[in-house]
Simulated scan of single mutants.
Amino acid sequence: MRQVTATGQSVEDALSSALEQLETTKEFVDIHVIDQGKKGFLGVFGARPAIVKVTVTLDPIDKAVTFLKEVTSKMGLDVNVEVTRNGNDIAFNLAGEKLGLLIGKRGQTLNSLQYLAHLVANRYSDKYLSVSVDAENYRERRKETIEVLATRLAEKAIHTKKDVTLEPMPSFERKIIHNALYNNKHVHTKSIGYEPKRHIIISPKINN
């Protein structure tokens, strides 16, 4: 739970300060007034600031689930969100009908949802959370496709003795290629460029 203790000339001022520090709003917090404060004589003598302790009560995972349901609902989809947690790794699996729209070309829409869900969850968490979003087992199918692609392009690099440049990919997909070719003795891989255009180059090893 994220929590701050804030002061102000009044309880409302102290609360506003706490909400600003936590970057949230009243509906997502628990408010405990430690001291109502005191204006004092002429607003100076004997004055005492108000003190409040404010705690974020909304679970970051619940917030991410709410976000995913709201977005998919606006897309005209009725989606159930299944959550699996392993330590700080959070997996959201979307189940429903017509999820092709949600996945998008080469998973671009799904990747965007994953990025936004990651931002939402971590905004409300005091620990870093690694977030993945999947639908219709797309991630596993995509992983298999990328591994086949990596093998095929590695063979091309070996045959032509020239570098093979892949199109830009998100970091987790680039990692699949690096891992797939890690033990290949005839090529090596490297990522170059900057997001969102960072991409992989597969190069034949000179000794081969």
Rank of each mutant, 00 (worst) to 15 (best):
I200N: 00
K105S: 06
V81N: 00
V65P: 01
Y115D: 10
Y115K: 11
V29S: 05
V71N: 01
T160V: 07
K143D: 12
H32F: 13
I103R: 01
A91Y: 02
E82R: 03
I192N: 01
K69H: 05
S10Y: 12
V54D: 06
P49H: 08
V29G: 09
E147T: 12
K161Y: 04
V120P: 01
L119C: 06
V187P: 08
L113P: 02
T189H: 05
P60K: 01
Y182L: 14
K175V: 10
Y128I: 12
R174H: 01
V65L: 00
D163V: 09
S112N: 11
E167S: 02
Q9Y: 13
N80V: 06
A6S: 15
R85Q: 14
P49K: 06
A117P: 06
D62H: 03
A91C: 02
L113C: 07
M75I: 11
V33I: 15
D163C: 02
K74E: 11
G46T: 04
R85F: 01
Y182Q: 14
R142Y: 07
R152F: 08
K185V: 14
K162A: 05
K156A: 04
F28M: 09
K185L: 15
E23A: 15
V29Q: 05
N111A: 12
D78E: 09
L42H: 01
K98P: 07
K185P: 15
S10L: 10
Y138H: 06
D59F: 03
V33P: 00
G100Q: 02
V79R: 00
H118Y: 15
K205C: 07
N137R: 11
I103G: 01
